[in-house]
Design a protein around this nucleic acid. Structure first.
Length: 485
RNA sequence: GGCCCGUUGGUGAAGCGGUUUAACACACUAGCCUUUCACGCUAGCAUGCAGGGGUUCGAAUCCCCUACGGGUCACCA
């Protein structure tokens, strides 16, 4: 049988790292087995829906390299793929449950439900819907209707049963139905509740593997009950561990210790391959010793068997490191394309660039490619190449205060007289000449020039830096430091 | 509170009863490379697998209890 997996986000916000990872695992499993991956939009909570959020989330999925075989945009044999467009389908099955007595009209008001719940809690009992209106007489119903109450539909949970779930990751997990109260499957206004809609959708869409976060494990017995009531075959469940922050706590939406949304990573200049790779390691571990994998390699290696039961901790430092690995390996031109917008936004450059300008910027960026963790860092890193006024740090001043410095600087400046432009190769000879002339070499030779021209004692390759700063500026800064001495 | 799930170093995480002297990676420390920074390379970094019992010739690996952490009990998904 062909494997079919799905990712079913609710369009209430941005694509979260947890959602992206669930989508990724589902995608990997399907692709590995030559199956289909479906994206379905779970939009029954209309109050929380954010217009356009589904499109944005799907765009981010695509950006990560996760594409789908069926969904709202490309259609498919089981369309529609948006819950709110499937109302007729849900109602058909709800009518069936109602007719069979497996569900009932519940007239309880929100106030009554809340009150019951509070009382149970106060008594130290487990909150559970009592089912007091399970078996109303036609007269009682008529009375409530006359009061203007509009009923919801509740699922009649059978008593004394044990539901056993055979989870691909957690093994056999048992739940007693006595711990589950009759739960709402359709709101008074007709919209279905998640637990009902997923079951109908997954069953009808022939989903074979339901992969989702562990927070859904406790929901599963309810869903299994619905599968059984409707005569559907249950899929293989796989509950993947939660993603926790560095303190081992669940991430709240407001948790600022971690960047939680995929588009934020995109905005900072993270590479999608790196994010995908990092996400794959959240709760899953490969068999060998490497951990840098392309999407194709992940498709090949992924397995549910190697998904951990323990929660995964989101290690920001490791993500940065991994992204840096991908930046180092990426073609320079790609990094340049990514970096340009940050430089423009910072007012460093104006787009579009002339060929000459682009060539220069490319060389500047090249200097930092190997140390970038994410592309937005390029602005701070390249600071010294865009400053008209330059500051000389204390460390640099100390270097410049050495007695041999004026001699080295003057000698170096003299060698520049004959030049029209400053080229990296030519500088090699110039340094040699200065060395010969002054007798200073190594650190004694390079540091004064670096400190004088850049104002700092650390930085990328000196010759290339000088060439990029340009003859004019180099001359004036050398002169400036010689005059001070 | 009931029901479920989890617990290996500074961090992520391998490990599925016997060459485990507990992989590998991140971080950190030291050294090498280098004018410097970064990159890269080399080395170091858990006498112990939450604690306590048990099973076994043998346990991080199986069982039980305790502690701690988490999930869930919605007309949210």
């Amino acid at each position: 049988m062909k494997i079919r997996t799905r990712y079913a986000p609710s369009p209430t916000g941005h694509l979260h790292i947890g959602g992206a990872r669930t989508a990724l695992f589902s995608y990997l499993l399907a692709k590995q087995q030559g199956g289909d991956f479906i994206v379905r939009i779970e939009d029954t909570d209309t109050e929380r829906n954010v217009p356009g959020a589904d499109k944005k989330q799907m765009d981010m999925l695509k950006w990560l390299g996760i594409d789908w075989d069926e969904s709202v945009d490309v259609g498919g044999p089981y369309a529609p793929y948006r819950c709110m467009e499937r109302m007729d389908i849900y109602n058909r099955y709800i009518d069936q449950l109602l007719a069979e007595g497996k569900a009932y009209l519940s007239y309880a008001t929100q106030e009554e439900i809340d009150k019951e719940r509070e009382e149970q809690l106060a008594r130290g009992e487990a909150p559970k819907y009592s089912g007091w209106d399970r078996d109303l007489t036609p007269e009682q119903r008529a009375k409530y209707e006359a009061e203007g109450r509009v009923p919801s539909v509740r699922f009649r949970v059978p008593e004394g049963q044990v539901i056993e779930i055979d989870d691909a990751i957690r093994g056999k997990v048992k739940f007693e139905t006595d711990g589950i109260g009759d739960f709402v499957i359709r709101r008074p206004d007709g919209r279905p509740i998640y637990n009902f809609a997923v079951v109908v959708d997954d069953a009808l869409m022939k989903i074979t593997h339901v992969i989702r976060g562990e927070e859904h494990l406790s929901n599963t017995p309810k869903q299994v009950l619905i599968y059984q009531a409707l005569g559907f075959e249950t899929p293989q469940f796989a509950h993947i561990p939660l993603i926790l922050n560095a303190e081992g706590k669940k991430m709240s939406k407001r948790d600022e210790s971690i960047i939680q949304f995929i588009d934020q990573y995109k905005d900072l200049g993270y590479l999608p391959e790196a994010i995908l790779n990092f996400l794959s390691l959240l709760g899953w571990s490969p068999e060998g010793e490497e951990e840098i994998f392309s999407k194709d390699e992940l498709v090949e290696r992924f397995s549910l068997e190697r998904v951990s039961k323990a929660p995964a901790i989101f290690d920001t430092g490791k993500l940065k490191w991994m992204n840096g690995q991908y930046i180092k390996k990426a073609p320079l031109e790609r990094i340049v394309d990514l970096a340009l917008p940050y430089l423009e936004k910072a007012g460093r450059i104006t787009l579009p660039l002339s060929d000459e300008q682009r060539a220069w910027v490319t060389r500047v960026i090249a200097l930092y490619q190997e140390q970038l963790e994410y592309v937005a860092q390029i602005v701070e890193l390249t600071d010294l190449f865009f400053q008209e006024e330059y500051k000389v740090t204390e460390e640099a001043k100390e270097v410049l205060s050495a007695p041999h410095v004026p001699e080295v600087l003057s000698s170096f400046l003299n060698k520049l007289d004959a030049l029209e432009t400053l080229e990296t190769d030519a500088l090699k000879d110039i340094f040699k000449q200065v060395q010969k002339e002054t007798g200073h070499k190594g650190k004694q030779l390079f540091m004064p020039v670096r400190a004088a021209v850049t104002g700092v004692v650390h930085g990328p390759d000196l010759r290339e830096s000088l060439a990029l700063i340009g003859l004019e500026t180099v001359r004036s800064r050398l002169q400036q430091q010689i005059d001070k001495a």
